[in-house]
Computed example of a mutant assay.
Amino acid sequence: MSIDPSSIPNFGAQPNPQPSGPAGPVVPDQDLVKQLLDQMELKYVVDDEGDLAAPWEDFRTYFMFRGEGDQQVFSVRTFYDRPHAIDEKGRLLEAVDDWNRRTLWPKVYSHTQDDGTVRLIGEAQMLIGTGVSLEHFVSSTVSWVRASVEFDRWLVEELGLEKDLESSDDEGDDED
């Protein structure tokens, strides 16, 4: 099974072409995801657990397969690296709840680490064990990646984090 390169939606304003491939359902695998990421021109690595990860500057998106047989699940999970203080958790959760109400994916939740910092994780899943159409798999995966990127942009704007980023850049400049 292969994906026609012209079928991969890009991140620009052009319409999304439709993938061509098998007429019936397919059970996606890691090789298919690698092919899709290559065609989307996204860099990726395989971690120690064998999962694919596409790194961005402030987050990492993992493409994971879990379960067996007809219960196998494909999950796209994004770990946002920006730490948030525990005393900001209420405000952060309000923003995340707003995102989750207004969007289909990724569904975002918080994780408080042992050191008290709060980080966010976004996730979308698809049951694939009985097979899915190649078109559905490709369009869903591309949409999930786009939405993961968009969430990070939205959160920065929603919480005014660009000011924090700019001031930390300015502080670093003063030390030089």
Results as ranks from 00 to 15, higher is better:
76 V>M: 15
49 E>Y: 08
77 R>D: 05
55 P>W: 12
69 G>M: 09
85 A>T: 11
73 V>C: 10
76 V>P: 01
68 E>T: 14
85 A>S: 09
55 P>V: 10
49 E>M: 12
83 P>T: 09
67 G>W: 02
57 E>S: 07
70 D>G: 02
52 L>N: 03
60 R>H: 06
56 W>K: 07
51 D>Y: 06
56 W>N: 04
85 A>P: 04
58 D>M: 06
84 H>F: 15
82 R>G: 03
55 P>A: 05
78 T>H: 03
86 I>S: 10
49 E>A: 14
68 E>N: 11
50 G>R: 02
73 V>E: 01
62 Y>L: 05
61 T>I: 15
74 F>A: 03
60 R>W: 09
78 T>C: 13
69 G>A: 05
66 R>L: 12
62 Y>N: 05
82 R>D: 13
71 Q>N: 11
68 E>A: 14
54 A>Y: 04
79 F>P: 00
47 D>Y: 14
68 E>M: 13
83 P>V: 12
53 A>W: 09
86 I>D: 11
47 D>S: 05
86 I>Q: 07
50 G>I: 03
61 T>Y: 08
48 D>H: 07
75 S>Y: 00
56 W>E: 07
79 F>S: 06
58 D>E: 14
56 W>H: 12
57 E>T: 06
48 D>Y: 03
63 F>D: 04
79 F>Q: 11
66 R>C: 03
76 V>H: 15
62 Y>V: 00
48 D>W: 02
69 G>E: 13
86 I>T: 04
69 G>C: 09
56 W>V: 04
66 R>D: 08
64 M>P: 01
73 V>P: 01
77 R>A: 02
56 W>C: 04
79 F>D: 13
57 E>R: 14
59 F>E: 00
60 R>K: 11
71 Q>C: 05
85 A>Q: 12
63 F>V: 09
51 D>W: 06
80 Y>P: 06
64 M>G: 03
47 D>R: 14
60 R>M: 09
60 R>E: 07
84 H>G: 08
56 W>S: 12
74 F>P: 05
59 F>N: 09
63 F>G: 11
69 G>L: 15
58 D>I: 10
47 D>T: 04
76 V>G: 07
59 F>R: 00
59 F>G: 00
76 V>K: 00
51 D>Q: 15
76 V>L: 14
72 Q>L: 11
85 A>V: 08
56 W>A: 06
59 F>P: 01
69 G>R: 12
70 D>C: 03
58 D>N: 15
71 Q>W: 12
55 P>H: 04
86 I>P: 03
50 G>A: 13
73 V>W: 02
67 G>I: 08
70 D>W: 01
55 P>C: 02
63 F>R: 05
55 P>T: 04
83 P>I: 08
50 G>M: 13
63 F>Q: 11
73 V>A: 04
57 E>W: 04
58 D>F: 03
71 Q>M: 08
85 A>F: 10
79 F>C: 12
86 I>G: 10
79 F>N: 04
62 Y>P: 02
68 E>R: 10
54 A>K: 00
57 E>M: 03
52 L>S: 13
53 A>L: 10
74 F>Y: 15
62 Y>A: 01
64 M>E: 10
63 F>L: 15
83 P>H: 06
47 D>H: 05
75 S>E: 07
